[in-house]
Design a protein around this nucleic acid. Structure first.
Length: 159
DNA sequence: GCCAACGTTGGC
DNA sequence: GCCAACGTTGGC
């Protein structure tokens, strides 16, 4: 069992959009970064748990939980010239870009904000909090996972 | 809207 | 292979 964090801009696709999808499941398409691609292709497994992170919004932070519903497979948006994530260099016979399917699990009663996450020494080594980090998909350690779940289950983090 | 940080591109 | 220019991410 692995733990992950995946970012999305809520104005584009937020956790409420996922919750309302048929089967509450959605392909996580459009990732065009090799590190993130490698994690989806090589490491993510069905049943892995995922934090849903809202980025580029009024209150960036972790808003809920998902799980991996389908392991890495080619991202068809890379081959669609009409699509915003079209990549003319990607060969359908040898796909460059991969995606996974995610399934909705839960929405937290309150966002665990980036600002709050930064206040806990237990989370000091989180990839998310490393200076200059821009990965849209990143691993979470088991210790970090359980600590953050504890925050969500108890009183809402202040700040 | 600004801008720091980082990845990618392409000239050489 | 170097590296400057450019584009993107994402917090603020």
């Amino acid at each position: 069992m692995n733990y992950w964090l995946m970012k999305s801009e809520p104005e584009v696709f937020g956790i409420e959009d996922l919750r309302l999808r048929p089967a509450q499941t959605e392909p996580w398409d459009g990732v065009r970064n090799y590190q993130a691609r490698n994690m989806m292709r090589d490491a993510m497994q069905i049943g892995d748990r995922v934090f849903f992170y809202h980025s580029n919004c009024a209150e960036p932070g972790i808003v809920g939980l998902m799980e991996i519903a389908k392991e890495g497979y080619p991202d068809p948006t890379a081959f669609d010239p009409e699509h915003i994530h079209f990549d003319p260099k990607s060969d359908p016979a040898k796909p460059t870009w991969m995606m996974v399917d995610v399934r909705y699990v839960a929405t937290f009663a309150r966002t665990i904000s980036l600002k709050a996450l930064k206040t806990y020494p237990e989370l000091a080594d989180m990839v998310l909090l490393r200076r200059g980090n821009r990965l849209s998909i990143m691993p979470i350690s088991a210790a970090e996972w359980h600590f953050i779940l504890g925050l969500a289950a108890t009183k809402p983090p202040e700040i």
